[in-house]
Design a protein around this nucleic acid. Structure first.
Length: 550
RNA sequence: GCGGGCGUAGUUCAAUGGUAGAACGGUAGCCUUCCAAGCUACACACGAGGGUUCGAUUCCCUUCGCCCGCUCCA
């Protein structure tokens, strides 16, 4: 499914344009760009930081302000190493990998099915060679056409009873894939019967590489002495700090179950392969709630949270139809999970996860209670008993959601100039106003008319304490409108000659109030999405805008 | 990490073993009465390092980054 979308040249081109726009307008830059960048790290520019803040603020208000069963929290990134030992990250957040020498495919070493059979070990091969066998050896000019022997150990496992010929076939494939030469003979070293070996690829019998470990946590040292006792990790998720502080937060917040803890913060994963712009980064930000509920009520809260979160995405401009709810199958679920929904968005590069909503049972609290030897139970006054609550965790990626918002907002449309009939492409970011980095652009129609400039500056000053606005007087008014379109600014306010001279004819203000002919102190209000213009009284602007950006 | 492709202004694209060009965009000025108008000027690039060479953006090596595939994705 993903590869189908990846292959779509329109989608790829759209993604390229979004990336270019992000840089051009200052949403997102590559980290440490002047030094060649750093794979999997990104910086948010002047517009990007506003967008990201607006997104986080809205999440924060949704969780901690408009509901009273969740309290906020901000945990440290560095924690006692014991946290990661108790959570299981230190032991399991790493994968021993092996590689098939023949196909170069990689497998989890612990998922290789043990094989039995006869293993044929080869020392190398003889070939009539006319090309270099060793590209790194400058003395090997590749001009030799002598029959040469090349040492390159390899092995193939074949089922018991099968002849060596089938092993030779695989070995020839391996050698021929590495040299452009006619292989005349294989040099057999030995053969032996093996039982339950995990050294060979079950799919083709090819020898596998030695297992190598990929630890996804960034290891670091606390304090000046870099020895074993100083090791800890940059947190790979924000969740653990909330579990570890469960008792403290519960105590001071005077909450009863069900209740939750909300946190927004950075997390770090040493991903094998960061990809797709900011989608998979090594440093990223999470928005997570740990919602603690009575034992047995986890499943129903899982459903509630799924609906809650879907509604939230609609409120930031991502339609429900673009969100795919994946019920994660048992086999793919993390071991602690008793049920997980993934909310996925249709990115141009494929359908990918924005948020995981997991019913984690009491796994985390139990682990920390066992390891710390500190009781983390909740006393239920109603039931007169102590228990470990279950946890439902809606865990969303901030950067991924920002990217989804950008992808969803990006639009190109063909607009026709009415005078010249000339067609042009208008690029516009249709952010919902509450997320837009800049809420309004403020313009004097002409910059060489001091009265217009002065009035526009006055409106700017009046709005600045209330919201992020931008003043611009450069170039033609049309150019300035197009510029704010690309930045996703929903409203344009233009001070024109009607502002100074009074309205030419009677009309209706954007607020619905009548405007009499000759009335002064009105400006043009221009809408980003429709490009429609209407008039509004200067005095009404703050209330009008505030009602639309909440 | 493996395999393949690719790195020239912010963007799109030229040219070249011997001073790197354009368009759009940007900045400033003039002008401009509502959707990227016009004029003038200015700034901005051969991803980085090394090698070959009298001279390298061009050839070679390394490295970094990007894209595609594999893999991974607590």
């Amino acid at each position: 499914m993903i590869s189908d979308l990846m292959a779509d040249p329109v989608a790829v081109a759209k993604m390229d344009k979004i990336v270019a726009l992000c840089k051009r307008r200052g949403f997102i830059f590559q980290s440490s760009e002047i030094y060649g960048g750093l794979n999997g790290a990104w910086d948010y520019g002047p517009l990007g930081v506003e967008l990201k803040r607006n997104l986080k603020d809205y999440w924060w208000r949704s969780m901690t302000q408009v509901r009273d069963d969740i309290v906020g929290f901000d945990g440290s990134i560095l924690m006692n190493r014991a946290v990661w030992q108790a959570s299981g990250h230190e032991a399991t957040f790493s994968d021993p990998m092996v590689e098939c020498l023949l196909t170069k495919k990689r497998y989890r070493a612990d998922q290789i099915e043990p094989q039995s059979g006869t293993a044929y070990y080869y020392k190398g091969f003889k070939a009539n060679s006319s090309v270099p066998q060793d590209k790194s050896n400058p003395l090997d000019d590749g001009q030799s056409i002598l029959s040469t022997e090349t040492a390159l150990p390899f092995a193939v496992l074949v089922p018991k009873g099968k002849p060596e010929a089938s092993a030779q076939k695989t070995a020839r494939q391996y050698y021929e894939g590495r040299v452009q030469a006619t292989i005349t003979d294989l040099i057999l070293d030995r053969s032996e019967v093996v039982e339950k070996s995990t050294s060979f690829n079950p799919e083709n019998g090819s020898l596998l590489s030695e297992p190598r470990t990929f630890n996804l946590m960034f290891k670091t040292y606390v304090g000046p002495v870099q020895d074993e006792s100083a090791i800890t990790y940059l947190r790979p998720e924000t969740a653990q700090a909330m579990f570890v502080q469960f008792k403290n937060v519960l105590e001071v917040s005077r909450k009863k179950l069900p209740f939750g803890i909300a946190q927004i913060g950075k997390a770090f994963r040493n991903e094998i392969n960061p990809r797709n712009f900011t989608f998979r980064s090594r440093e990223f930000e999470q928005m997570e709630v740990e919602f603690f509920v009575k034992p047995g009520t986890g499943p129903e809260w899982l459903e509630k949270w799924k609906e809650e979160r879907l509604a939230w995405y609609e409120a930031i401009g991502i339609p429900r139809a673009k969100i795919h709810v994946l019920t994660v199958p048992d086999a793919d679920r993390a071991f602690y999970s008793q049920g997980t929904y993934d909310l996925e968005y249709e990115f141009p590069f494929g359908v990918q996860e924005l948020e995981g909503i997991a019913h984690r049972g009491n796994y985390d609290l139990k682990q920390h209670q066992d390891h710390s030897k500190k009781p983390l139970e909740y006393f239920d006054e109603e039931l007169k008993q102590k228990y470990l609550p279950e946890v439902v965790e809606p865990s969303a990626g901030v950067d991924r959601t920002v990217l989804a918002v950008l992808c969803e907002a990006y639009a190109e449309e063909t607009v026709k100039d009415e005078e010249s009939g000339k067609e042009e492409t208008r690029v516009v970011l249709r952010f919902v106003p509450r997320l837009a980095p800049i809420k309004a652009g403020i313009f004097p129609l002409l910059k060489n008319k001091p009265e217009l400039v002065e009035k526009a500056r006055g409106i700017q000053k009046a709005l600045q304490p209330l919201m992020k606005v931008a003043y611009d007087e450069a170039g033609s008014i049309g150019k300035r409108y197009r510029r704010i379109d690309e930045e996703g600014t929903p409203f344009g306010i233009t001070v024109d000659f009607e502002t100074l001279e009074g309205a030419k004819e009677a009309s209706v203000s954007a607020t619905g109030a009548p405007i009499a002919a000759g009335e002064k102190e009105t400006v043009t209000l221009r809408h980003r999405d429709s490009m429609k213009q209407e008039r509004i009284a200067i005095a009404d602007i703050p209330a009008y805008l505030l009602a639309r950006i909440a």
